[in-house]
């Protein structure tokens, strides 16, 4: 099998815009799932609301497309009620960090055996480009026309602090690394959180001088900095570029987890 066998061919092409990273992230996630040799009949994909959350509808498995922000709460019910099911959650920055922030930290705290893939495009794409909790300071959106004035969430750091067993961050440029990270997440008992920096040419790029999808990808390539390098620079007291995207594995541990199949 390949990741394409995990997609509902009759639902493609999907609704995402040209150049949207969500499709890439869906590919990488399902490629990792494919490597796990999971039975599609025993796999459940859960998502909330937003561009990212449409992903569930394209996966050839049982899928639950829920209400805004609540995907993790629904997934908690599925996984605790039937731990033998494999559960993957697709979510976005608005879905996970704004309206679903409470469920996010509590799912990490419970350390439920879920793999959560967050397509973080720094914006509310579905509703037309409003600022989200991860919109960087100064970035333009329809609700931050003079530049975002609020500090942004560091989702990976948040998941580490809240207790997730596996946390990684990559971008949609790092397809192989992302695939490996998702696989590591699927293999780790407990909550695995993979934040993926995603490009939204239509709503984020257009307002922030990243007009083409290729420009966005180039930015991901040049600005990404491995976590080990970042840590070394910080330890040595050397300057870190303010726009660096720290990528890599943030934590991998085996704290007590819930909902792990016996």
């Amino acid at each position: 099998m390949s990741f394409e066998d995990w997609l509902r061919a009759d639902r493609l092409p999907h609704i995402w815009c040209s150049g949207c990273s969500n499709g890439t992230i869906l590919n990488c996630t399902m490629a990792a799932v494919d490597m796990m040799d999971w039975d599609p009949d025993r796999t459940v994909v859960v998502s909330g609301i937003g561009c990212s959350s449409r992903a569930a509808g394209y996966v050839e498995a049982d899928s639950l497309h829920t209400t805004h922000g609540r995907a993790l709460a629904f997934a908690t019910g599925v996984k605790l009620a039937e731990p033998s099911l494999n559960v993957v959650v697709f979510t976005g920055d608005g879905d996970l960090a704004a309206i679903g922030g409470n469920h996010f930290i509590h799912a990490c705290r419970r350390n439920i055996d879920l793999t959560v893939v967050c397509m973080n495009n720094l914006i509310y794409g579905m509703t037309g480009g409003q600022g989200s909790p991860t919109t960087p300071l100064g970035a333009l959106s329809t609700t931050t026309p003079y530049g975002a004035a609020e500090p942004a969430f560091d989702l990976a750091a948040l998941a580490v602090a809240a207790g997730a067993n596996y946390v990684a961050r990559w971008t949609s440029y790092h397809v192989r690394e992302l695939e490996k990270a998702v696989k590591a997440g699927l293999e780790t008992p407990g909550l695995s959180f993979i934040e993926v920096r995603a490009g939204c040419p239509t709503n984020y790029g257009r307002k922030n001088r990243i007009r083409e999808a290729t420009d966005q990808l180039e930015q991901f390539r040049t600005r990404s900095m491995l976590k080990v390098k970042y840590d070394r620079l910080v330890a040595e007291g050397k300057p870190v570029p303010h726009d660096a995207i720290v990528v890599g594995e943030f934590v991998r541990r085996s704290n007590p987890a819930m909902g792990v199949a016996p």
Binding site: L64, F74, G77, V78, A81, L85, H106
Partner: peptide, 16 residues
């Protein structure tokens, strides 16, 4: 963690 999550978990469990 709250009633929103409670009913969400109940719905998720019902689907299993």
């Amino acid at each position: 963690e709250d009633e929103i999550a409670s009913i969400a978990a109940v719905i998720g469990a019902s689907w299993t």
